[in-house]
């Protein structure tokens, strides 16, 4: 207890002296790390460009107006592609995730080694951003929507499988015992014991991932993954900011709608 003893009189203080000193030193250490890091960033920065920023910003903001409304007829097809990208990427990821999650969950895995492999797949998929996945996949299948879809799927597998195998591990074992006790086969136990318990989480996770994938698919075109991101990139490269702003607004609206749909859908299955 932080009581201070002076002349036989006890006085309550918020922190003891040692505690305050410890906190101060910790703060000092943190500050030092921060300053060193800042110095490093500062050295890597071309300051004249930074100071030039207001001019640059003014330049492209003025170029944004008036927005090129006619660009909509390029945007809408690209938006359609983008949404398909997210939908199919999610479905593919969800389908692949089922066996991986079953292999990764402690209570359903056929073997420890299989579990290790499944966990490695999950970790690899999760740790690499979908943009980086797209970069790699574009090299194999060529640029375009298909590459983007695969990248979205490959990245999605990690998250869906992880959340899904955690649900499998937390499953209620009693109903499963009960169904085993009726003499049901393994497949039937899976059908009646596991699937009803897992379905809500599986649907919820997939819908949530779809929402994230909508965001991801709007930018995957920047590295050649097709969709609306490709338009954004090309508009910016051509300095057509009046078109870029149209794309940006479209992306914002799409993301808002996706968020709303996802929230409603997850409410419904909960």
């Amino acid at each position: 207890m932080p009581w201070k003893n002076t002349d036989n009189k006890s006085e309550w203080v918020f922190r003891s002296r040692e505690e305050s000193l410890k906190r101060f030193l910790l703060f000092l250490a943190g500050l030092t790390v921060f300053l060193i890091a800042s110095k490093f960033i500062s050295d890597a920065t071309m300051w004249p460009f930074v100071l030039d920023a207001p001019t640059q910003a003014m330049d492209f903001v003025t170029r944004m107006f008036p927005p090129d409304l006619a660009y909509t007829n390029r945007i809408l097809p690209a938006l359609w592609d983008t949404i398909n990208l997210a939908v199919f990427g999610t479905v593919l990821a969800a389908v692949i995730s089922v066996p991986i999650a079953v292999m990764a969950a402690q209570n359903t895995t056929p073997h420890r080694i299989v579990r290790g492999i499944a966990l490695t797949i999950i970790v690899t998929s999760r740790s690499v951003n979908s943009l980086i996945w797209a970069l790699i996949i574009v090299q194999v299948v060529g640029p375009g929507l298909f590459a983007g879809m695969l990248a979205i799927a490959v990245r999605g597998v990690g998250m869906i499988s992880k959340l899904f195998y955690e649900t499998i591990e937390e499953i209620d074992q009693e109903p499963i015992e009960a169904i085993k006790a009726t003499g049901a086969s393994k497949a039937q136990v899976f059908l009646y014991g596991y699937i009803p318990q897992l379905m809500p989480s599986f649907v919820g996770v997939s819908v949530y991932r779809w929402e994230i994938n909508i965001r991801e698919s709007t930018i995957i075109g920047i590295v050649g993954g097709g969709g609306i991101g490709f338009l954004l990139n090309s508009a910016i490269n051509r300095l057509r900011w009046d078109q870029a702003i149209m794309v940006l607004i479209t992306i914002l609206i799409t993301v808002f709608i996706a968020e709303w749909v996802s929230a409603k859908a997850r409410e419904a299955v909960a």
């Binding site: 209620d172 009693e174 109903p175 015992e177 009960a178 169904i179 006790a181 009726t182 009646y192 014991g193 009803p196 318990q197 379905m199 809500p200």
Partner: peptide, 14 residues
């Protein structure tokens, strides 16, 4: 062999 459990062991979502 039929079995009846303490916590009923029903599949809740069925």
């Amino acid at each position: 062999i039929g079995m009846i459990f303490q916590e009923y062991a029903l599949v809740e979502r069925l």
